[in-house]
Structure formats: structure tokens, C-alpha cells
């Protein structure tokens, strides 16, 4: 025992061997403080972007899906062609490509439209950069605008998938149901809205649930459109820090933050599955029992 006391540890070790003020509780308080500091709170707040984009994108995908399916079912060949071209071209291209392309193209389209009104010939001649046509026509997009555009492009991309799902579901509604509705003297619109689309949901839901899962997973791409979303913040928070003035000194912790996101998305998937099971049970009431799986 005495031998131990006489040995003097290195300064670094000495610091480490200092008795802690109080054990676990202090540690817990420290970590609680760490995960609720300002940067972390911003990270938690940025989950809203992901949620908004998913919800708005999902709603728009259903709208575009219904539109596409209506076009595909149209009486006119040209409209049918438009519907099937939309669904097959967009599905044939990676979602990231369209996701990046649409907001950029929309921005440029608006800038071009503005430039035809506000740009004087002198301003156009003075412009050296390839885009926009003149300085006045420049449209600066903030987070809100990008978020809206991202949602619309999510809706457009996954609307193409929803088009196929809804188109298939419309054809799966038993013809007898529609005939019965017609026999009751319903007009074409009444048959469509009161019987056809009402009964379509139960056939479309399994497919739409898949589309929703794809949308949820695609929301991880928001950071590609300059939105400070959960992925970007995870990257910033986990990046190695060597300056005590900036915050806790730690080495590369990014994988821990990404692990949190990994688990977050799995939880969202699990929750969505439960929600769709509930919806399925609700829409399946009174309809074919074998549809209810």
C-alpha cells in the first residue's frame, strides 16, 4: 500500500486519477447537458423539415397519382399517352436525378419568365455569368422555398409510382359494383366519385404504403437542396472537434449520429406500417374479407 503512494503518476494520469466529484449522477447530468445544448436543439428542430417534406410530398404524390391514373384511364389516346409517359419516364430515372432536376429547372423557368419582364437589353448585354439573364431576374431561394420545391418534386416522382398503383387498383374494383351503381341511375361522375374511387382505396393501400415508405426514405436527400436537415446537422455535430472553446472535444463521432438517424427511420417505418394496418382495417370494412390481410 505504501509503495503505491510513493509512486508519482504522470501529470496526465494524475488528472485522470483525480477522484470524481460524484460518480454516475454527475456523468448523466453532463451528457444530458451535452445532448440539449444549442446545436443539438437545432438538430432536433430540423426534424420538422423531414416531416413536412414527407407529409406534403405524400399528399402531392396521391394527388399526382390520381391525376396520372385518370389520364391513363382517359377516353382520349393523347391523354392516355401523357399519363403513361409520365409514369414510365419518371420511374425509369433515378429519384435523386429528378429530385435535383425539378427544383433547379423550376427556379430557372421562373427566372427566365421574370427576365422577359424586368431585364433591359443593356442589363442583358452587361451580364457576364451564364445565368440568370440579368441581375434583376435572380431569384434567391431560401429554406422554405427549397422545402416546398423538394416536396413538389417528391410528389412528382412518387406520384408516378402512385399512378401505377392507383391505375391498377381502379381496375381491381369489381365491375359488378360499378354496374350496380349505374343501374341505380348514378351519373358517370357520381359512379366515379361515390363508388369507383371509394372502393379503389382498399386495393390501392398496400401499394400506396410502399410508395409512402419510398417517400419517407427519400426525405433523407433534403440536404442535397441546401436545406439544413437532420443529415446535415448529424454531420456537423459528429465532426471531430479539437477546440475546447467550440464545445466538447471529441474525435469523429459521426457514425453515432448517423446510427441515431438509422434508428429514427426504422422507427418511422414501423409506425407507418402500424398506421397503414389501421387504415387497411378501416377501409376494408364491409368489403371483401380476403383483401383484409
Amino acid at each position: 500500500m505504501t509503495h503505491f503512494r510513493t509512486v508519482k503518476p504522470l501529470p496526465v494520469l494524475q488528472e485522470m486519477l483525480q477522484p470524481r466529484k460524484s460518480g454516475m449522477f454527475e456523468d448523466l447530468a453532463f451528457w444530458l447537458g451535452y445532448i440539449t445544448n444549442g446545436k443539438h436543439l437545432t438538430w432536433y428542430a430540423s426534424f420538422q423539415f423531414t416531416i413536412y417534406a414527407a407529409l406534403l410530398g405524400g399528399a402531392l404524390a396521391v394527388v399526382f397519382g390520381l391525376t396520372g391514373a385518370t389520364l391513363k384511364n382517359s377516353r382520349f389516346f393523347v391523354l392516355r399517352l401523357v399519363g403513361s409517359t409520365y409514369s414510365s419516364i419518371v420511374r425509369g430515372v433515378p429519384d435523386v436525378l429528378f429530385f435535383l432536376f425539378f427544383p433547379l429547372a423550376f427556379e430557372q423557368g421562373v427566372e427566365w419568365l421574370v427576365s422577359t419582364q424586368v431585364c433591359s437589353p443593356e442589363a442583358i448585354a452587361a451580364q457576364t455569368a451564364p445565368w440568370p439573364p440579368c441581375r434583376e431576374a435572380n431569384w434567391f431561394l431560401g429554406t422554405t422555398e427549397y422545402l416546398l420545391l423538394a416536396s413538389v418534386s417528391l410528389g412528382l416522382v412518387y406520384g408516378a409510382f402512385a399512378t401505377n398503383v392507383i391505375h391498377g387498383a381502379m381496375r381491381a374494383v369489381p365491375a359488378g359494383q360499378l354496374e350496380a351503381a349505374r343501374a341505380y341511375g348514378m351519373s358517370t361522375t357520381q359512379v366515379l366519385w361515390r363508388v369507383h374511387i371509394r372502393q379503389m382505396w382498399v386495393y390501392a393501400l398496400p401499394g400506396l404504403s410502399n410508395v409512402w415508405m419510398l417517400i419517407v426514405k427519400a426525405t433523407s436527400l433534403l440536404s442535397l437542396l441546401q436545406i439544413a436537415d437532420i443529415v446535415l446537422w448529424a454531420d456537423r455535430l459528429g465532426a471531430p472537434n479539437f477546440l475546447p472553446t467550440v464545445g466538447l472535444v471529441h474525435d469523429d463521432w459521426r457514425w453515432r449520429y448517423y446510427l441515431v438517424l438509422f434508428v429514427f427511420y426504422i422507427l418511422v417505418t414501423w409506425l407507418s406500417e402500424r398506421a397503414f394496418e389501421y387504415l387497411m382495417r378501416r377501409t376494408g370494412r364491409g368489403i371483401l374479407s380476403e383483401v383484409r390481410t
Binding site: 433523407s220 443529415v231 454531420d235 459528429g238 438517424l261 438509422f262 427511420y265 426504422i266
Partner: peptide
């Protein structure tokens, strides 16, 4: 787990794990 999470996150996670 792998079907329920985005590939984008999986890329970041495994790459940063390999880095650390």
C-alpha cells in the same frame, strides 16, 4: 432494418464508421 432506412443514411453511417 435495411429495408426500413434510407440508403443515403446507410452510406453515411458505414463510411463514417470505417473512417473512425
Amino acid at each position: 432494418a435495411f429495408r426500413g432506412s434510407p440508403l443515403f443514411i446507410q452510406f453515411f453511417m458505414f463510411y463514417s464508421l470505417a473512417l473512425s
